[in-house]
Computed example of a mutant assay.
Amino acid sequence: MISIKNLLSTLSTTFIAGSIALFTVSKAQSTSLTGLIIFSTDKSGSASGGQIFNTRGGRGDDFYNVWVQQNGKFINGLDEGNVPINISLDIPGVYTFKMYGEPTFEFGYFGLNLFFNGNNTKPGISVFAPINTLPASPITSFSVNSNANTLPLAGLAESAVPGAGTLCFVDKSTMVTLTSYKWSSSNVENIDLVSPFSAHPSGSNDFTGEFTLTVTKIR
């Protein structure tokens, strides 16, 4: 015969296990932006091997970091150990992000690959645009990137990957759409917030960028 004490213990264990399983399933179903890379391209969107900024961080990654802000606060950083991002996009709405990077040369085109749900090899959204050099410029025009030669989150440390060829990433009932993107030279905002490997001023003005994602439920 099972005692009341043992029965309650069994029920408690079952409830906790069920709660953990539910949490795990919910977490697995979450739609998240888990990486981004900005890289020099030619006018067709092909990676040109110039400047690279990513949110990979850690040992073995020698590319400059890209530092991301939302509502005026850094999402990643402020040091090399906290570069990766994991931004939940489950709630419908408009999400605007600012980006900062330490520049070297300031011309040409720059691509943006966005990675979702931990798949940091295959981009879910890919675009490119000419660098913006006008301080009074609004959001610049950009193009969908379907070029076969773009970059995974690890950059040149891994093989090239095709661009996503789309502005939309669909994850079950969630659709994420990129509606704006620009990457500006250091004389546009004249701001110094970051260094190559930390979100601290370096003594020289930063590249600045911006992109907007619109999240909707489709079914």
Rank of each mutant, 00 (worst) to 15 (best):
N6M: 14
T10F: 15
T10V: 15
T24Q: 03
Q29F: 01
Q29E: 13
S32M: 06
L36V: 13
I37Q: 04
I38Y: 12
S40A: 11
S44F: 12
S44C: 08
Q51G: 15
N54L: 05
G58I: 08
R59M: 01
R59I: 05
G60Q: 00
D62K: 08
Y64P: 01
N65M: 10
N71D: 11
K73F: 07
K73W: 07
G77A: 12
V83S: 11
N86D: 11
P92H: 13
G93A: 07
G101K: 01
P103H: 13
T104Q: 10
E106N: 08
E106P: 04
F110L: 11
L112P: 04
N113P: 02
N117Y: 00
N120P: 07
T121C: 00
G124K: 00
I125V: 08
V127K: 13
V127R: 14
I131M: 09
N132K: 10
L134D: 14
I139M: 11
S146G: 12
N149Q: 02
T150I: 06
L153A: 13
A157K: 07
S159L: 03
S159I: 03
C168L: 14
V170G: 01
D171I: 02
T174G: 08
V176A: 02
K182F: 02
S184T: 12
S185V: 12
S186Y: 14
G203A: 05
G203V: 11
N205G: 01
D206S: 14
T208G: 10
E210H: 03
F211Y: 10
T216Q: 06
K217C: 07
I218R: 06
